[in-house]
């Protein structure tokens, strides 16, 4: 258990560094996939199986695919007149390192382990669903609106002036992901209208 945890932790961290370090964007996306998988494993270890599943399905299955698609479509061009890969490298490093130092100090200084009681009743998928559709029904409905808005927005942006729908592939993928993520029937219903 602990070994698996350490492994997932290390893999996630390294993959994350690769995401921002890789020059090649395809590699960066792959590293992102790896990192997301590592996080999914951590979710599983943290007794969040539902989230682990969703993570794999939507993120690794969907977002990464979308990203790859994005990279492929826009890729033609890097090379010849590709601009310098990085800007403000040092400044970025200082900001990020400073932020991490602050966070790490706060985490350590907060002495989280003292007085922490193990959870008696882990959150189950069932309780999650109850909370989603009872306590937070308003937010749930708002999310369906949000996804609908995103859908319309993506259509608007991707549609060409002359009417050719070059971006419809992205849209299709995006809408599927959106709907999967929420499993909200409302989302698909509205989505139908929007078309």
């Amino acid at each position: 258990m602990t070994l698996l945890f350490v492994l997932a932790l290390v893999v996630t961290a390294i993959a994350a560094v690769m995401v921002v370090a890789a020059k090649n964007l395809v590699r960066a996306v792959m590293a992102l996939a790896l990192m997301l998988l590592g996080t999914a494993v951590l979710y599983a270890l943290l007794e969040a199986p539902f989230l682990a599943g969703v993570q794999v399905l939507t993120y690794v299955g969907g977002v990464v695919t979308l990203m790859i698609f994005g990279v492929m479509v826009t890729r033609r061009h890097e090379g010849a007149n590709a601009p310098a890969e990085r800007i403000h490298g040092f400044r970025g490093l200082v900001v990020a390192a400073g932020m991490f130092a602050l966070l790490a100090w706060a985490v350590v200084a907060s002495d989280l382990e003292r007085g922490a009681t193990p959870i008696v009743k882990p959150e189950t998928t069932r309780s999650l669903a109850t909370a989603l559709l009872d306590d937070h029904l308003v937010a749930f409905e708002v999310v369906s609106l949000l996804l609908l808005a995103a859908l319309i927005g993506a259509v608007v942006l991707a549609r060409r002036r002359d009417g050719r729908d070059e971006g419809s592939a992205i849209l299709a993928a995006a809408s599927r992901e959106a709907i999967d993520a929420q499993q909200a029937p409302a989302g698909s219903a509205h989505g139908g209208d929007a078309r």
Partner: peptide
């Protein structure tokens, strides 16, 4: 917080577009 964050996104997302 959950509702707040979600509403914030509902407000922001169309603005990007």
């Amino acid at each position: 917080w959950i509702l707040l964050v979600v509403c914030f996104e509902l407000m922001s997302m169309p603005l990007y577009v």
